[in-house]
Design a protein around this nucleic acid. Structure first.
Lengths: 193, 193
DNA sequence: GTGATGACAGATTTCAATATCTGTCATTTT
DNA sequence: AAAATGACAGATATTGAAATCTGTCATCAC
């Protein structure tokens, strides 16, 4: 039972409220109630409801991705590492949506309302991709690229169907793994020396 | 002023009503009113509002695509033909959304509510792609594929960002053409012998 | 003085009454 | 008889009044 209210406590409570009530019902008053404080206190730490939701979204997204980034750090040749990275990204999101569709929907709604957060997250992801591409070029596995960042973004775009939550509904369909492998192989063939 | 009401007249009127009122406000009663008949007469030709909307969607989609399919029939080597096909598809959709965003939104909403129509349309599109791929394999421009249809679908999936209306908001951003070229080149490199 | 409160104005949401729409079908029109 | 109608029941949408929420700020507590 801490003396003073911290931004982190508020974020934690806001996350709980969002989980329980969903993105359309969760209010700042609910968050304050959950913490046993007045809603005015929340506004001491966050300038607006939108800012609070954005902060929750950012935290949620970065924590969710930390696991993926780690899993795909394996010490492999670039092509395999790229394939693993893409497959891990896909698998992790697919598991999320299958395990708890409601929570995934809440999370997706939050992400959708913050295009800035999405842009930043995509920038992080493509930076990871660019890293792999550079390693592959250095090792002679990939052909040299005019613009590695552009190519990294192209790889990200080409695999959209397997990481954009907008397509989550298709991730349980039969043949989705074959479709993923097909795109993956096409992309890898396009990168190969 | 024809004697008897035809399904085609109803489709035409329904299309007008949808254009004018938008997908959420357009009613069967509106369509009947526009034709000067009772709404019961509409139900003689279409079993439900959903069926009527689906029929409109199908017609709208197939007419919109006829122009694209034609434009991309040019007598070129397969790789150029593929690039032209993809570029024409992208350009045509981008023009639609830029020229009349409201109509595009109406159209997109209709498409979204009919996943069956979408699936059929995608099947047609990938069939066109598969045709190009086969020609390319025969001419020795593309490497032979295990499964041409699967590869065609992979090409379609990889270029999602440039034909799925869900991304229409990004089509006016700077650098979108460069992003398109990057994905296109990656895909073509992946197909090349 | 720093942090928390709760009253307040304006914006947004909820709710229930009302109106409109969807789909059916017995009846009317041609 | 084939086509069209319009009354009807149940479902859905609209509306406006009441409730709740957001964001501010003068005041209170430590």
């Amino acid at each position: 039972m801490p003396e003073t209210l911290t931004a982190d406590q508020i974020l934690e409570a806001a996350q709980d409220v969002l989980r329980r009530f969903g993105p359309s019902k969760a209010t700042v008053v609910d968050v304050a109630r959950a913490l046993g404080v007045s809603h005015g206190s929340v506004y001491r730490h966050f300038p607006s409801k939108a800012a609070l939701r954005e902060a929750v979204t950012r935290r949620w997204l970065s924590r969710a991705h930390a696991a993926v980034a780690l899993a795909a750090k394996a010490d492999l040749p670039a092509p395999e590492r790229l394939r693993t990275w893409l497959a891990t990204l896909f698998d992790s999101k697919r598991h999320k949506v299958l395990d708890d569709p409601e929570l995934f929907a809440t999370f997706t709604a939050l992400v959708r309302e913050n295009s800035k957060v999405v842009a930043d997250h995509i920038a992080e992801l493509t930076a990871e991709l660019a890293e792999i591409l550079r390693a592959g070029v250095a090792a002679g596995d990939f052909k040299p690229f005019d613009d590695v960042d552009q190519t990294a973004r192209a790889v990200f775009d080409a695999t959209n169907r397997f990481h954009d939550p907008a397509y989550a509904g298709e991730w349980k369909q039969d043949g989705i793994d074959a479709a993923f492998d097909a795109v993956c192989s096409l992309v890898l063939a396009g990168l190969a020396r």
